[in-house]
Design a protein around this nucleic acid. Sequence first.
DNA 1: ATAGACCTTAGAGCATACTTTAAGGTCAAG
DNA 2: CTTGACCTTAAAGTATGCTCTAAGGTCTAT
Lengths: 139, 139
Amino acid sequence: MKIGDLEKLSGISAHTLRYYEKEGLLKPSKRGENNYRHYSQDDLITAKFIKRSKACGFSLSETSSLLAIKNDKSHHVCAEAKQITGVKVKEIEEQIQRLKQMQATLIQLERYCCGGEESAEFCTIIDALENGNDITGGE
Amino acid sequence: MKIGDLEKLSGISAHTLRYYEKEGLLKPSKRGENNYRHYSQDDLITAKFIKRSKACGFSLSETSSLLAIKNDKSHHVCAEAKQITGVKVKEIEEQIQRLKQMQATLIQLERYCCGGEESAEFCTIIDALENGNDITGGE
DNA sequence: ATAGACCTTAGAGCATACTTTAAGGTCAAG
DNA sequence: CTTGACCTTAAAGTATGCTCTAAGGTCTAT
């Protein structure tokens, strides 16, 4: 299939597919005489692999590492895949914690502000940002 | 105080302070004869305001809007500050939900993988990414 | 007066992951 | 044989928020 077909079947734009190729993630199995890219069913699987990997939060570089395992399974072990996954679990956990901390602060800010048409002279949100009041972990 | 002093007192690097100035967030109250930036106590408050705002997850652009309120309170109302905060609360909530979804998937992947020195031939992580098995919201 | 710390500017570089542009070649239908 | 859809490349642009570099001016202490 040509790049437009893979675009439709994988849901990844042709532009992005070319970009992934440049980054070494997905090489078309061959080129036609006209130099057009030709993709196989295996390439489609790889494209979907990339998409799922990204949906799990893996970066392109991490996805590359996972693809390297997929593409040469007998020379790789489960430990590698599990390690990459474990690192990502920790990273995402940290990100979630950071966001929750922000969220808690924001919700405090939101709760105390009247939100009306009063002058911002005594706005608790502005005041908190200005003076560090009520900002968790503030100063 | 000079930029190096503000750097120490605010914890924002001189480079970044100049960047913020270029972006219109924090202008030094005056320039010396030697063209050095001179910051006032008020500028220090503004610098800390920016830092707290960023800690809450606000972008520089959003921080700009909040600063505009802070710098001219009588011409702004609480509703503006609360609206900005409310939008951010929703954004962060969505981000957390996305990350939690990823996390759930990743933990499934991690759980089922033996993680040993076995060949990746039958690795459940690679298999799931390849075939969409067990990937929540997959395909 | 000279070393070293500090300041100035404009502009480039970094990181990630695309997205778009420009300029052009190929192919199938009518 | 031309139109329009599709393909090609290299390179630049987008977004965010810095971070660094180069080349040079200023200030303070000895």
